[in-house]
């Protein structure tokens, strides 16, 4: 069993940190299956809505609440990787 942290990547606008946002939509609840590439949650920043997808196939174990503040590097979900 391997728990994978799903983060708002710091490599998005890598040298321009300091942007902030919040979780606005949670599409997968704890216990639900998720496929690699499926959107787990949406984060709103001033300029856009960012769709954060699962990097692995697995089961969602934890996911941030709508309204949670987010910055680059924030963990927004934990996914238990299937077959790992």
């Amino acid at each position: 069993m391997r728990l994978v942290e799903v983060k708002v990547p710091e490599e998005l606008w890598p040298r321009r940190g300091g942007w902030k946002g919040k979780v606005v939509n949670v599409l997968k609840k704890p216990g639900e299956k998720v496929a690699r590439g499926e959107v787990l949650a949406e984060v709103e920043i001033e300029k856009a809505i960012l769709e954060i997808e699962s990097p692995v196939d697995g089961v969602v174990r934890k996911v941030a609440e709508p309204g949670s503040p987010v910055e680059p590097g924030s963990v927004i979900a934990l996914v238990e990787e299937a077959g790992a």
Partner: peptide
């Protein structure tokens, strides 16, 4: 309205 962007690096 804001653009919706799929984050995939």
């Amino acid at each position: 309205v804001k653009p919706r962007l799929r984050v995939r690096l």
